[in-house]
């Protein structure tokens, strides 16, 4: 089972004010896989997400996405390359309508400038119509179609989570990083989200890397699992392999006191 990797992390190191959050982590994510990133609190998962999405610059090490180096690139550039993330605490643009939230995430297109609206309205409109159709169909998938005109700030917590994932998908990504997609939502909705993810992987071949604490979910949903502890990757493999790995059990049950969460 040696699939082509979409994401390769080699010896990533990141420390904040002398506190090492990621201490030489290396792992790969296979193209079209759903990979879980697990580890005890303070293992460096969120910092790893920040490194992958460009919100933090690694002190050393290399990150490659779809064959090209993205180490230290600006977040918007990484996003435009097709690697997008969501946040642990759901973020939506509360002051905008749901549909505008989606359209902002549409791939950059010509014709959203005032002058092109004036000079070539038809062309601009065509591009915008296309984006709008894509947005509405995604909202349909996530059951938010009827809320399209509402302000995102008026959505419930669960709906926001859905909107955030829908937004991430709006960018037509080849890989999505989900930071605790089930946190703060009820289990039913959580499973709906995971069902969407599974079907999207099926239909579009999108790769997913998600952080999750619920081991049942991880074991049932992930193709592969990457385990981090104290800033390092201590194990990597299928759910069965991980379940049998003594190092993982050690890390979860008998490891030293967790470091501060970055």
């Amino acid at each position: 089972m040696t699939a082509e990797p979409i994401l390769e992390v080699a010896n990533a190191v990141k420390s904040f004010d002398g506190l090492t959050a990621v201490a030489g982590a290396s792992f790969t994510v296979e193209k079209g896989s759903i990979t879980a990133l697990i580890g005890p609190n303070g293992a460096g998962k969120t910092t790893m997400f920040d490194l992958l999405s460009g919100f933090a610059k690694p002190d050393s090490g290399a990150i490659r996405f779809a064959g090209q180096p993205i180490t230290g690139k600006a977040p918007h550039r990484i996003a435009r390359l097709g690697l997008v993330r969501t946040f642990q605490l759901t973020r939506v643009l509360a002051g905008m309508s749901v549909i505008d939230n989606m359209l902002l995430a549409a791939p950059r297109q010509p014709g959203q400038h005032l002058y092109s609206l004036l000079t070539a309205p038809r062309h601009a409109n065509a591009a915008e119509d296309k984006a709008r159709d894509a947005a509405l169909s995604l909202l349909e998938t996530f059951g938010l179609r009827s809320k399209a005109a509402d302000y995102a700030g008026a959505l419930s917590g669960g709906q926001r989570k859905l909107l955030e994932i829908a937004r991430a998908l709006m960018t037509e990504p080849s890989m999505v990083l989900l930071d605790e997609p089930m946190a703060g939502v009820n289990p039913t909705l959580g499973h709906t989200i995971l069902d969407h993810i599974a079907s999207l992987r099926q239909s579009n071949g999108t790769s997913f890397l998600f952080v999750e604490h619920d081991m049942d979910v991880v074991m049932n949903r992930a193709d592969r699992i990457v385990v981090m502890a104290q800033g390092r990757v201590i194990s990597m493999g299928t759910p069965e392999q991980i379940r049998a790995d003594a190092a993982v059990i050690e890390a979860y049950l008998g490891g030293p006191a967790p470091e501060a969460k970055p």
Partner: peptide
């Protein structure tokens, strides 16, 4: 009107609302 309807206007509002989210949406914040 420009803030409401143009691309850059929407990007500004998105940036005002949540800078990180604007960045992951591919908005060039600088």
């Amino acid at each position: 009107l420009a803030l409401r309807f143009t691309g850059i206007g929407k990007e500004m509002r998105a940036f005002a609302d949540n800078r990180a989210l604007a960045e992951v949406s591919g908005i060039d914040t600088q």
